[in-house]
Design a protein around this nucleic acid. Structure first.
Lengths: 202, 202, 202, 202
DNA sequence: AATGAATGAGAGTTCATTCAT
DNA sequence: AATGAATGAACTCTCATTCAT
């Protein structure tokens, strides 16, 4: 009943919420937002439907919970140490892997993106991940150019935009084919065009 | 009741079906598949809900009708005459315009794409548009190289893949922000990297 | 399919609505608004719950339907021909009988009255019956005085108010005792005090 | 933990119970029994919902608690000293004031009365207040007649019945119009008809 | 004495679909 | 070809109540 138990209580609460958002995540990956049923989510998490509503008062709030946790997983592929060229290489490699191994993550983010126009809260959360991604990518490109690892003619902002939409677009080919599609083709061509060189080479 | 009337009957039937798929298209663009209600569609088309079911026995069949007509509109931006370089230029320009002016078309195609894993018929229809698109794009790139308008080092298949996923990916950035975004950045960079030259120039 | 069927259709619709409001009426009489369940009403009327919502989109609208039809039954006890004294006698006699034989009607009107503060539509409907009742009663008293059948000192408005609240108040004694209570006592005393004489007697 | 603490414990328990019945009273006045939610009551009283159930095991018992305390407030307007005429005057004056200033009390009593048929315990409590009220009123009338303050022709029982139903009936006119209505009209006419004279005057 | 967490049982409402006409 | 009426099955959400602590 002391401090420890309070923490345990908080932990428990967090675990339940996470269990529910994870269950919802899996259901969305499987059946889309269209097929998302709170009862299924509750059942998957092993709790009563009323318990789900105890943690997430509405279906909408549950979906927002999914957005937050999905974006969290996505953000883990963001680089943050090493030279710009190294970070770029690491980031692209992480994304390539993520797209092939965690297709669900992108399917769900796709569903949620399409929901954004109807839920300003989701739109905001998405924007709060997307804008920093663009900025980071452009900044890395800029620094890589400064480091002499990229063609100085390259426009960092436009290139960042192209890279990001390309990565996002892969999801469409993937869902239609029920498996990762054109991931390598896309990344290979992207890297070829970038022509990322080791530092200081001419 | 003769031949003419039969034709008129067929025409009428086609018109009704089109009115219904168009109404459904608008509803999907507005509320997503998640928010698609057959009653709304029937009301928008000015017919009774039972009449809708006369033309489309199930909601699923209505959605498939939307896929077919949406892809029809999309295919109109496919080029088919002129030199490879000209066709490429025209196609990219048509897509750039379509993405900026008919955002709805891509939103709906996005929704439908994400439904593909759950509806093999949609998956097939999508594939039947997507695969030819890839082939056509790669073929145009190949011919443009042969015509000396593109860098001979370019890998036509990978480049086609990148171009197509980039175009598709624009939709995610667009819907989340409720306005065409990064369209020009993406296309500019794509064209810059392609470096499409007039025929026979060195 | 002609005019007759159209009428039949309207009739049918009216009948269904009436069957539903009557079922709701009985349920309210039995269990109060507190215990009113749309499913029970539908079952009592022998239709599916969805059919109830086809006729009354919300529970609230069903309740309003009950108000309207209950007040209709009540208004039938309003007099409209004969001398003022005759009308008064007939009205009081009709009410006395109604209170003893159709206790439910007053129980339900009691429930609905208490709901009025929370539903302006009900409040308005109630007011539209109550105000005319007061006016009519005061007018009859006024005319009976002019006809020499009532004490000229009588204040018609105050007396009308007293008579009406007394009639309404009987319901509380009735529900608590599960049977008509103090009806005769109240009416006897009311009539004694009124001292309604045949026309022109001193 | 001795005698004092036990008393304190009892006091505390009573206070909690009272806080809860008062909160429930306010909620019933506001939203009716129909809209009474135990969670709201607990929140208003500043305790957890489980705590409410510690003091009142069921919702029904909470409602009974409200009946008891509401009737307590009502009984305070009962007279008990002075001549019969004085008591009658004081009682009528106290009720007139109560009806105008504490409308809530009558609204709640109205709600609870209508519940009586479904809860024999409430019916009994109501009866235990109502019957003595009738007896007391008739007795006062009888004594006032004996004291020469009322018309000897007056039937004490019937008059008591009329007075009480009139007072109760005011509530229906009041709630539907959301303001004290016809209170003065009713009381004025009642007092006029009673013609309550000072003792021994002819 | 008090609470956060959990729940069974249902509430009103919705929706794709069907059927008689 | 078209419709008003009807429905089964579900949906999200609610609520009084319970229980471990």
């Amino acid at each position: 009943m002391g401090h420890d138990n309070a923490l345990t209580g908080e932990d428990h609460k967090m675990q339940r919420r996470q269990a529910l958002t994870e269950a919802a995540f899996r259901r969305i990956a499987e059946s889309g937002l269209e097929g998302l049923r709170t009862r299924d989510v509750a059942a998957d998490a092993g709790v009563n439907i009323a318990t789900l509503h105890y943690y997430f008062p509405t279906k909408e709030s549950l979906i927002r919970g999914v957005v937050a946790s999905a974006l969290l997983r996505f953000r883990e592929s963001m680089p943050n140490e090493g030279s710009a060229a190294e970070q770029l290489r690491w980031h692209l490699s992480a994304l390539r892997q993520l797209l092939k191994e965690e297709t669900d993550l992108f399917v769900v983010l796709g569903e949620l993106s399409l929901r954004a126009p109807r839920d300003p809260v989701i739109a905001q959360i998405m924007k709060d991940t997307d804008d920093p991604w663009h900025r980071k990518m452009a900044e890395l490109l800029r620094r890589a150019i400064a480091e002499g690892c990229l063609d100085p003619e390259l426009n960092p902002d436009d290139t960042a935009a192209l890279m990001i939409v390309a990565i996002k677009g892969i999801i469409f080919s993937t869902v239609a084919a029920l498996r990762p599609m054109r991931v390598d083709q896309t990344f290979d061509q992207l890297e070829r065009w970038l022509g990322l060189r080791p530092r200081h080479e001419p």
